[in-house]
Structures are given as structure tokens and as C-alpha cells.
Amino acid sequence: MAGEEKGTEISDLPYSLMMEILSRLPMKTLFNCKLVCKTWPHLISDPLFLELQVARPYTDIMVQIKSRVFLTHVEERATDNNILEVEKTHFDIKVKFPGCNFDVIGSCNGLLCLEITKFTGYKSDPGYRSDPGYKSVCVCNPFLDEYITIPIIPMEERDIMRLGFGNSVLSKQYKVIQLFYYGNSHKYLRAEIYTIGTGRWRSVGNAPGKVCCLDRYGVSSLGSFHYALQCANERVRGLISLGVVEGCLCMSISTHSNPQEFCIWVMKEYGVKESWTKQFVIENVNSHPHFDFCMPLIFLSNGKILINRKGLV
């Protein structure tokens, strides 16, 4: 690089500008960039960087396949019908939690929320069982290799149904929600929220309505938690799952009357009930009779939708 000219060099640029550039890169290149020089890992782990990155069009998704989490870069190719470019990059989360099983509760802005179940003994042992006392929630950034563990205090009278994970747009805080039945006959459904950084679970009281099944993905990042029971109140029968696509709350519904078909509804205007719009009807889904829910992940520019099938995050 020329030294004789007196101008501002790229290395003199403010950090924020360098972050601007780096935030446009796919994860894989970012890993690489951690090695460029000593300041760059700081750039990449800056909270501001995450904010910039989140604002970019969504191109990387994390996929859980059995006990491994893969990072997938989604690239749209104009000529190719096959839009998924799967890079076989995986995060070895298992190594971090020896002897544990983990389940992905949700992901938000590159953070993963995991439910960790510690087993006593090895699977081959006769006394092997999953010990509910060792359940915990872990929020991690696999990219930066950072992990926060949140304990779940086991209580006899509680029966945990579902956990959810989301990010509040207003406070920018990450929150974990647990929904559980309370009381002898599982009479009440209650919810507690753990805001990361506060160090404690906070009760938000009884959940309205009677629910027979809660959706594990019943979480939105739009500032509050939504769960499937909201829809249950609207007397929709069938399988419902909720998600957020392009900043809009959406739900996909497959009805019992026609399991081969499911509809995607999008709430165009947040908080406005009337703005629910039936966006798509997808037919001939090779549906599993029980728990095959499909959730749109990304709307691609060519009108195709990337859909989350069972087992994917």
C-alpha cells in the first residue's frame, strides 16, 4: 500500500465503518476475519456489530440435525432451482456439555437457546435416566463461543411444558419464557420470564385459556411473547405454529379437516388483529399425521418461501 500519499488509510477508519463492511459478510468469512489482526475480533464481538448484522438481509441460518448444529448459508441463484447452499460447518455444542442432551428451543439474532438435560450415567448403564433436576437453559453465541447458563429450579408441583426464546425490540434484551402447569390437576398454566442480565425468573401470572398443547416455537421477537394459545382462543382447530418473518408475526395452520394443506397467515400490522392476512395456502404437503409443522423462514425474492420442517431451527 502506498505510503507517500497523505490521505486517510483504511486502517485509520473508525471502528464503526469497518464494522459496516464486515457486517455484510457471511458467517464463514467472519470466522476468517477474526484472524486478520488483533482488533478485528473485538469489532466482530461488539454489540453494535450484532445490531448491524441483524439489520442485514437474512442469509445465514442455523440448522439442528440430531445433536449437531450446522451453519447454513442461503444463497439465491437465479438460474438454479436449488437455492440452498449447504456448507458443512458445524458447531460442536456437545463438547461443551459432556453427558448432556440438548434441544434447541429457539434462535434469535444468531444466538441459540438450548435446553440442556443432564443424564446421570451413560446411556448404556442400566440405571440411566434423564434427571429432571439437571435441566437448565443455555443461551449461547456459538460464533463467539460464549455461553450463559440459566438454571431451572425443579419443583414438584410444576410441570414444564414449553420454553421459548426471544428478543425484545424495545429493550433489546433477550428473554426466555417458560410455560408450565401449576397445581395438582394441572389446573393453571403459568408463565415465567427470565430476562438475561437480571439473573432471575419473573412470574407473569396465569396464562389465559385452556390449552392442550403448546407450541415450542411460540415465541416472537417483536417485543412480547406470543404463544399458540392466543390462536386457540380464536377457535382454530389444528396445528398452529408461530414465527416471525420479515418483521411480521406469522402463523401457519394446518387443519385437521385437510392435513394435506396448510395456510400461512401474516399479521401485517403488529398488534392489529384485523391485519391478519392469509398470505399463502400450500397444498399437497406430504404431512406427517402428528407433529409436522411448517414455518416460513424467509421469503425469497422470486416468491418462493423457505420453510422450516420438523427438526430444523
Partner: peptide, 25 residues
């Protein structure tokens, strides 16, 4: 910014250093 990001996408560490003229510390 976008053009520069496009040019360093999926490149090696050395390439990126060279691109920006950054010394490896």
C-alpha cells in the same frame, strides 16, 4: 462497503490482510 465486502467474501485470511493493507499482529 458492499463492493468491498463482496470482494473479500470467502477469501483467505492472508488475502483479506493484503486487501486492506493490514499487518498481522
Amino acid at each position: 462497503n458492499q463492493a468491498v465486502a463482496d470482494r473479500i467474501e470467502n477469501k483467505s485470511v492472508e488475502y483479506v490482510r493484503n486487501f486492506f493493507g493490514i499487518d498481522n499482529d
